[in-house]
Design a protein around this nucleic acid. Sequence first.
DNA 1: GAGGTGTCTGTTGCATGGTAGAGATGAGTA
DNA 2: TACTCATCTCTACCATGCAACAGACACCTC
Lengths: 218, 218
Amino acid sequence: MQLTVADSIRAQIISGDLESGAALSEVTLAAEHGVSRTPVREALKQLQTEGLVEIRPRVGTFVTTPSRAEIIELFQMKEVLEGAAARFLAQRGEVPELKALRVNIARSDAALAANDVAAYTDLVGEFHQLIVEGAGNSKLVQHYTTLMNQLAYTRLVSTSLSLPGRFAESENEHRHILDVIETRDAAGSERLMRHHVQASQDALLEVLSPAAPRGSER
Amino acid sequence: MQLTVADSIRAQIISGDLESGAALSEVTLAAEHGVSRTPVREALKQLQTEGLVEIRPRVGTFVTTPSRAEIIELFQMKEVLEGAAARFLAQRGEVPELKALRVNIARSDAALAANDVAAYTDLVGEFHQLIVEGAGNSKLVQHYTTLMNQLAYTRLVSTSLSLPGRFAESENEHRHILDVIETRDAAGSERLMRHHVQASQDALLEVLSPAAPRGSER
DNA sequence: GAGGTGTCTGTTGCATGGTAGAGATGAGTA
DNA sequence: TACTCATCTCTACCATGCAACAGACACCTC
């Protein structure tokens, strides 16, 4: 399986190489990828159903810019899916992902001790990913992945970690979540995971626009 | 907005006009819709990301046939999303969808009294749809819709209602769910909704293959 | 000066032809 | 009879060309 055009464009959008609202010309993309316009068109159509670009007929294709309301909706979905994942994982008991999660926590501790924000940013993404994968439901992974792509999540995390105290707090929450999952307390795991997602959302929204506290819109 | 080729093919798949596993020839579809192969290809690519068809490169496109394991995964997701929807709806309080739900229940009562399975089948779909829409999260609606399309849910419901007693039981569960939502008990609404989805899954799987009880696979 | 209209350019939308790969089918051999 | 290999056909895949539309700009009219 080689990298498709869609994968390439998707990566550019998620990484932020292509800015929000940027126009995506078919001919330009075709030239950049060394193919004709046809496969580019197909890729854009695919990215549209993934919610990453918006195709305005006869006008052009643009990178979607989620509104503040949409970001809140996405985080609400994140809370739902990750909460469910934690619950399923706790129910399943010992699976390979649990071991990987313990390693993740150990590395996060080290990153915290060294105050290495960049390393921890990656570890945060991995932590959440591992929980979702550990739930043992491929559909859950699929929906979660599209969600995270729409949020351009990895880009956001490093921002929210800039809040004073959030780094240590986040790491603490992660450790507690894993502890509860290991006790196989399904309901508790779900509750804790939801709280954690809410906390990280609060931190993020505070950084994005400090004036508006969580829940004040819609 | 006119009906696109993708919409047309999607409708055919969901309704069952196109059977599971059926090969979708580009030229045939193009001829049927009076267009060339290019827009058909784009439509198929879109349906692939929706999980409705499987494109085997250089071979052809086929209507996906969810395995038994996948159906269980899909129902697990259905439980998660509808549970969350019920919770959100209970939290929101009085919204237009609540009124529609009361009408729905009244009609369902009538259908039950008249033993009108066909009418009730539609009402079941509407009930669940209203709960999800009432949650006030457009992303939730999107993910839920793709999920239901993958399950070809409406086709399945009538099957499960053939079980003796399931019709009345299902209607009863619906009424209880709406009752609890109206008391604005978020946690209780979520719990009840999950149980209902599980019950309907049990009924369905029993009809599909009576030998294997729920949870015996994977 | 302001509003409307016509043209012009850049873009997407679709059709079609050539190419390459996958699968099937047949013949040949052990 | 069974198995292997070569050929052949059918399919998706991509490139390219043409048509149609949206938006911008200038000009004309009031």
